[in-house]
Simulated assay, not measured.
Amino acid sequence: MTDKTLTPRPSRLDKAAFVAGYGEIYEHSPWVAELAWENGLEARHDTPAALAEAMGEALSSAPAERQLEVIRAHPDLAGKAAIAGDLTDDSTREQAGAGLDQCSPEELARFERLNEAYKAKFGFPFVMAVKGSDRYAILDAFETRLENDPAEERRTAVEQINRIARLRLEARAEESR
């Protein structure tokens, strides 16, 4: 995808306007946008890729406990919040796009078991950028990542969250065309 310019242009916004416009890119974690703005935004940050890089660096360089706050702000995949309709608009679109709203009762039960096993082992929900994936690949990734150690899995979750943020920014740029 060719990078389009984001609207409104991040580099032209004051802190309050930037956080109001981009604070929800990281699930219930506007501090990531605040930190990215405080680190300095230039005209080059007006594209999804460059803004995603700046925001991703804010999260990746944060202390582990702050990273865990962001990870824990994410819903379970195909979990109770999804079934109840309590997801953010972005999460609802992303999970539906991967077919998680079409799971059979058996698949939902498997997701529930894996969600519980994962949270018991790591203390946070399984996070995966699901765009372009399907429920079968997600279930396979669940199984594989359950083998990770906690530090490796925290890093993997942060990488996935940064990927989600980039995809969300790219979608915004496309919507504003």
Rank of each mutant, 00 (worst) to 15 (best):
T2E: 01
T2M: 02
D3G: 03
T5D: 01
T5R: 12
T7Q: 07
P10F: 09
P10H: 05
S11R: 07
S11V: 01
R12P: 00
R12S: 13
L13H: 00
F18G: 12
V19T: 02
G21S: 15
G23T: 02
E24Y: 09
S29C: 07
P30G: 12
V32I: 08
A33S: 01
E34I: 13
E34M: 07
A36I: 14
W37V: 14
W37K: 05
E38K: 11
E38I: 10
E38D: 11
E38Y: 00
D46I: 13
T47L: 05
A49P: 05
A50I: 00
L59K: 06
S60D: 13
S61L: 10
A62I: 00
P63E: 09
E65P: 08
E65Y: 12
E65W: 10
L68Q: 13
E69H: 10
I71A: 10
R72F: 04
A73P: 01
A73V: 07
K80M: 05
A81F: 06
A82L: 08
A84D: 12
D86R: 15
D86W: 08
D86Q: 14
T88M: 04
D89A: 15
D89C: 01
D90W: 14
D90A: 15
D90M: 09
S91P: 02
E94P: 10
E94G: 13
G97I: 04
A98T: 03
A98M: 03
G99M: 01
L100Y: 05
Q102A: 14
P105W: 04
E107W: 03
E107I: 10
A109Q: 10
F111L: 06
E112P: 04
E112H: 06
R113P: 02
N115R: 08
N115V: 09
E116G: 14
E116Y: 07
Y118G: 05
Y118I: 11
Y118F: 05
A120Y: 07
F122L: 13
F122R: 13
P125M: 08
P125G: 13
V127R: 08
V127L: 11
V130W: 00
G132I: 08
G132R: 05
Y136T: 11
A137Y: 03
L139F: 06
L139D: 01
A141L: 10
A141Q: 12
A141I: 07
T144Q: 09
T144N: 06
E147D: 11
E153I: 12
R154S: 06
R155S: 07
T156M: 08
A157Y: 02
A157S: 10
A157C: 09
V158D: 04
Q160N: 09
Q160M: 10
I161V: 09
I164K: 00
A165T: 06
A165D: 07
R166E: 12
R168W: 08
R168E: 00
R168P: 05
E170C: 08
E170R: 10
A171N: 04
R172P: 01
A173G: 14
A173V: 05
S176T: 14
S176V: 12
S176E: 10
